[in-house]
Design a protein around this nucleic acid. Structure first.
Length: 278
DNA sequence: ACGAGGTCCTGCGAGC
DNA sequence: TGCTCGCAGGACCTCG
């Protein structure tokens, strides 16, 4: 489930390979992941187009093309973007959604088992409105603890839901919301606007720490996620709460609790360490 | 503004 | 053994 660290890993792996390459003979195996663009126009625009820049915004891979378009790929739950050095096997092709030659016998392949991912082709204006709808990047040096705290003050929703709200904060999903809240010792169900300034500050620090650590570990592979070179990430070995419900809290030994009360998503936390105090 | 719930999609594992 | 069903949860939607 690619969140910010996973997409950042993909982008860092792919950038040196893709920058400057020309896309050739793109093929689309499923059209249900396209938004606001017809398959024929997508393929026509991609064919022969050069990749100028490989970037990330929130949980999305952004390929800036010579034509001025941006190919934006949201991997959703199970999407992966990988460069293959040889022809795809039948198994690899099975979930391929979009593939294109990039020269030197290599192919860029977007595969997505559940196809909850989305592909956009945006011109400049489309890109501006697209990125304007997404919140600040948590690792942006210009985004600081006080700006983060200001975001949290604006809503009464549960803090965990706020962390995952892409309009308020870019790139954080279920795994890293759980981990950051644990590290900051904050109850995930706490009202966002009731966090004390020092709690918001601590949460900001924890969030940045866990995102940086996950990038260093090349992301978390639970099932489908792969790096840009097709490897599994390793942060799953470092997770402290996500997926560890019923096991001992790594800090105090209490059994970790799992609930689905917040946004119907799996929330795992420690009753003792993340005690509610407001 | 907010919570609840539905929608998309497929693989997987539990339970019968 | 083989079936059904619930779950995984990102992003978006509607409804009250």
């Amino acid at each position: 489930m690619p969140e910010l660290p996973e997409v950042e890993t993909i982008v860092r792996d792919l950038r040196p390979i893709l920058a400057g390459r020309r896309l050739r003979h793109p093929t689309l195996h499923h059209t249900d992941i396209l938004r606001r663009v017809r398959p024929s126009r997508l393929l026509r625009t991609l064919d022969g187009n050069r990749i100028m820049e490989v970037g990330r915004r929130a949980k999305h891979v952004v390929l800036r093309l010579e034509s001025g378009h941006r190919l934006v790929i949201q991997p959703g739950m199970t999407g992966t973007l990988v460069v293959h050095h040889r022809r795809l096997t039948a198994v690899q092709r099975r979930y391929a959604v979009l593939e294109a030659g990039i020269g030197r016998g290599e192919r860029l392949v977007y595969r997505d088992v559940r196809r909850l991912g989305v592909i956009w082709l945006l011109d400049d204006r489309g890109w501006r409105s697209y990125t304007a709808r997404i919140g600040p990047e948590p690792l942006d040096p210009d985004f600081d603890a006080s700006a983060f705290a200001a975001q949290l003050r604006g809503t009464r929703q549960a803090i965990k839901k706020v962390l995952m709200d892409q309009r308020r904060l870019a790139g954080v999903g279920n795994i890293y919301a759980n981990e950051a809240l644990f590290r900051a010792r904050i109850d995930p169900s706490r009202r966002s606007d009731r966090l004390r300034p020092q709690e918001a500050h601590a949460l900001f620090g924890s969030l940045r720490e866990v995102l940086q650590a996950a990038i260093a570990a090349k992301g978390t592979t639970v099932r489908d996620y792969r790096t840009g070179t097709g490897q599994a990430g390793s942060f799953q070995d470092i997770l402290q709460v996500y997926g560890r419900g019923g096991l001992a809290c790594p800090r105090c030994g209490t059994r970790l609790a799992t609930t689905h009360a917040i946004d119907a998503r799996q929330t795992t936390f420690c009753w003792r360490c993340q005690r509610s105090s407001g």
